[in-house]
Design a protein around this nucleic acid. Structure first.
Length: 781
DNA sequence: TCATAGCTACTTTTT
DNA sequence: GTAGCTATGA
């Protein structure tokens, strides 16, 4: 037997050596899924299969990179670099680089990220003379994305009775029009959004038999990781690609399906068994990761979901500690508790920073942990949130590069045409966009022929200079690599110099970021790629741009650094840590208040909780806070319903509420004087700020400033026991306290369930309409 | 045409 | 709390 097969259990080995025919591996959490996948690929290669004939699709770039590395390690060779391995999006983007022309796109097409896409949507909504407030880019984008992931094109969208009914009910009758206009605009811009990468791939295979034939025969072996998170578009593509050889191997766990908001459907698992003959199913049920305690809790929690694929996850690991459940008074104390616990565990059990992960439902929650960790001098890394490439200065720079590669890219053009300021303002830009639409040409073409469109002499000259400059950059495309061009652009345009001259802290940071960007481009041009280097523009700008758009924040940070890792649960999928903290176990946050309206949504939240629990190898801490700042205002929260689903014998409950005395009680004496000053002009001089603000002077200044700016409003300082009440209990006639406006009486309740509005007559500030979703009100009892 | 200040609306999760 | 938009004055 080959060495690499020795460390596998029977089921795993079976999965690895079953190379021919459709195969479904149902892999429970921690059952060695990645190991099986990588070994299976290594096995194929060892058997003599050509790396060029293997396609492996993963969910993240990180997973792909890790897999490659492991395969190389098993084989001890560089053969793995020739594998087609990556995310659906990146693999298809790579293929599209040489096939897009068949669909009428330039092969140098641009990939629009979510921001670009929303910006285009906004533009088309405005051009259709619709209200952007009503057709919010965010909502429209999600709707269109949903359609695309289900392979519903603009025409079908428009003709589908149910879809139309839905839009009517949502009072968005123009959705189909917007969808069509958006798709057309992207096409005109020579751009694909994330979803297009899938859709266009599908169209390519569906409508171009030569292309289908080519890739069907190229990819003799197909493997798909995280299969439970694939959507119908991905499913159909795989079905087409795998139709000839039928060597399709999918690996997934229905209990870990957490991306239905992105169109993923567990249906794909059921469908798979129907679409192929003789699907072999192998279950991996032995867990190698977690203690029995953690596993039991996870199993018990997920039992509350209906219709799981029957699975019996077990382990031989030794018992371990109970799960710890900690209640704190506030999000800040939650952060403090976690930092303290990390410190304690490091001392007591000799853990390193990298043994800890802090997981949460929303990115916004990272703040309190960050502060506490920083205060305790514990090194940490946050994954997620704003990616490096989403920073303004980087997007600006990249926009130049994008425009050079693809002048039709209107988003890029609009971004930089007047950055740095060159006298082509909003009016001139609007005019160019209009002219482009009227003549059905790109905005760039309008600029190239600006003289024909009646610009004033001064503007015309600016435009011509701009066009000349971009053209000169473009002339470098064929002869220079990405770095050379990027460097040249930075030198020729003055915005880098402007950044350099900005000596503010942010300015320095921005300049450093730009330098980092250049470094990354340099690195890109110097890293060797696969043997297929004959492909179009390997070290060219286009390839570079494609790569960075598909890179997420998580891909840019070192997962092996000795730091505490902070990330959302979504981002933690596939990872494991000796000690895991799951924070914010509160109703409305986890499960999210936006996902408790249907059974399906709630079950997905529960699966998310399952994923969170099963990240832990040895110790698991669950925390929740009684109060938490949301949108900058304080809210009170109930503990999450998921806590009740945990068998209570497995839980050690405790309360971490100490250490705040100096902030609330012994601060009274000092604060009274401070309060009197701060509350000057307030009708409620007796009030006291209960907030444990680390910087009182900030509160002082801002409240002073606001009372100066708005003399009409009398400042109010919330009572010491101010905790917002549940708005559901609000009635006409209720006596309330508002954090800003003071005391008053509810005169009227109106608005929808989702957005209730109360009219309140305040004692000193008069009648005001208050949006209850955002306001902080305490009902007086 | 441009820079700034102040206001508003919003926050799930991600390729 | 903050990004992004609008109104304002230069």
């Amino acid at each position: 037997m080959q060495d690499y097969l020795k460390g596998l259990n029977d089921h795993q080995r079976n999965a690895v050596t079953t190379t021919e025919g459709p195969l479904m591996i149902v892999a429970g959490a921690g059952s060695g899924k990645t190991k099986v996948l990588t070994t299976r690929i290594a096995h194929l290669l060892a058997k003599g299969v050509d790396a060029f004939n293997i396609l492996a699709l993963t969910f993240t770039n990180k997973a792909a990179a890790e897999m490659k590395e492991r395969i190389e390690h098993i084989l001890g060779s560089k053969e793995a670099r020739n594998l087609y391995i990556g995310t659906f999006h990146s693999v298809f983007a790579r293929i599209m680089r040489s096939e897009a022309h068949r669909l009428g796109y330039p092969n140098s097409f641009t990939i629009y990220d979510t921001d670009d896409a929303k910006s285009v949507i906004k533009t088309v909504v405005q051009e259709l003379n619709l209200d952007v407030q009503h057709y919010k880019p965010n909502a429209v984008y999600n709707r269109i994305s949903g359609a695309k992931n289900a392979l519903v094109g603009p025409a079908e969208y428009n003709n589908d009775y149910h879809i139309q009914q839905e839009d009517m009910r949502a009072n968005r009758p123009m959705m189909a029009k917007i969808y069509a206009a958006y798709a057309q605009r992207c096409f005109k811009n020579g751009a694909m959004d994330f979803d297009d990468l899938l859709i266009k791939m599908y169209e390519l295979l569906k409508n171009f038999p030569e292309a289908l034939h080519k890739y069907q025969h190229k990819f003799k072996y197909i493997m798909i990781d995280e299969y439970q998170d694939t959507n119908p578009a991905q499913y159909e593509i795989i079905k087409l690609l795998g139709a000839v050889h039928e060597n399709v191997c999918v690996v997934g766990d229905d209990a870990q399906s957490i991306y239905s908001f992105r169109g993923a459907t567990i249906q794909n698992i059921l469908q798979f068994r129907q679409d192929y003959d003789d699907v072999k199913v192998i279950k991996l049920e032995q867990n190698y990761r977690s203690t029995p305690n953690i596993l039991t809790v996870a199993n018990e929690v997920i039992k509350n979901n209906k219709g799981q694929i029957p699975k019996d996850l077990w382990t031989e690991n030794k018992q371990g500690d109970n799960i710890r459940l900690i209640r704190t008074m506030s999000d800040n104390e939650e952060g403090k508790f976690v930092a303290d616990a990390i410190q304690e565990q490091k001392l007591r059990n000799h853990y390193k920073n990298k043994d800890f992960a802090i997981l949460y439902r929303t990115n916004a929650q990272s703040r309190s942990y960050e502060e506490s960790l920083r205060r305790m001098n514990i090194a940490y890394t946050i994954f997620g949130g704003l990616s490096f490439y989403q920073r303004k200065e980087i997007k600006d720079y990249v926009a130049y590069l994008r425009l050079i590669v693809n002048p039709k890219d209107e988003e890029a053009l609009k971004r930089i045409i007047n950055y740095p300021v060159r006298g082509i303002g909003k009016t001139s830009v609007d005019k160019a966009v209009l002219a482009a639409n009227e003549n059905n040409i790109s905005m760039w073409e309008v600029l190239e022929n600006a003289a024909r469109f009646g610009y004033k002499a001064g503007t015309l000259q600016s435009i011509e200079e701009f066009v000349t400059m971009i053209r000169s950059f473009r002339s470098m495309l064929d002869t220079k690599n990405a770095y050379e061009i990027a460097f040249h652009v930075g030198k020729q345009t003055s915005f880098v110099k402007e950044l350099f001259n900005d000596k503010s802290t942010e300015g320095v940071q921005r300049y450093e970021n730009v330098q980092e960007l250049l470094n990354s481009i340099k690195e890109f041009t110097e890293t060797p790629m696969s043997e297929e280097s004959g492909e179009v523009g390997d070290k060219g700008l286009a390839t570079y741009l494609q790569q960075i758009t598909l890179l997420t924040d998580a891909d840019q940070k070192d997962p092996n650094a000795d730091t505490v890792k902070l990330m959302t649960i979504h981002a933690a999928k596939g990872l494991e840590y000796p000690v895991v903290f799951v924070g914010g176990l509160e109703e409305g946050l986890f499960p999210s208040g936006l996902s408790i309206n249907t059974r399906e949504e709630l079950e997905e939240e529960r699966r998310l909780f399952y994923v969170a629990i099963t990240r832990a190898k040895g110790r698991l801490y669950l925390t929740y806070a009684n109060t938490r700042y949301k949108f900058g205002s304080l809210t009170a929260n109930e503990p999450s319903r998921f806590i009740d689903e945990i068998p209570q014998d497995y839980l050690d409950r405790s309360f971490a509420g100490g250490g705040t005395r100096n902030q609330s009680s012994s601060g009274w004496a000092n604060s009274n004087a401070f309060e009197r000053m701060k509350g000057a002009g307030s009708s409620t001089g007796s009030s006291f700020a209960r907030k444990a603000e680390p910087k009182p002077e900030k509160t002082f200044v801002s409240s002073l400033a606001s009372s100066n700016a708005k003399p009409k409003e009398v400042a109010h300082t919330p009572s010491s026991n101010f905790v917002p009440s549940d708005i559901a209990e609000l009635q006409v006639g209720s006596r309330v306290e508002h954090q800003k406006f003071g005391f008053g009486e509810v005169v009227k309740l109106e608005g929808s369930n989702h957005n209730p509005v109360a009219t309140i007559k305040f004692d000193v500030n008069g009648e005001k309409k208050i949006m209850l979703n955002y306001a902080k009100l305490m009902i007086q009892k």
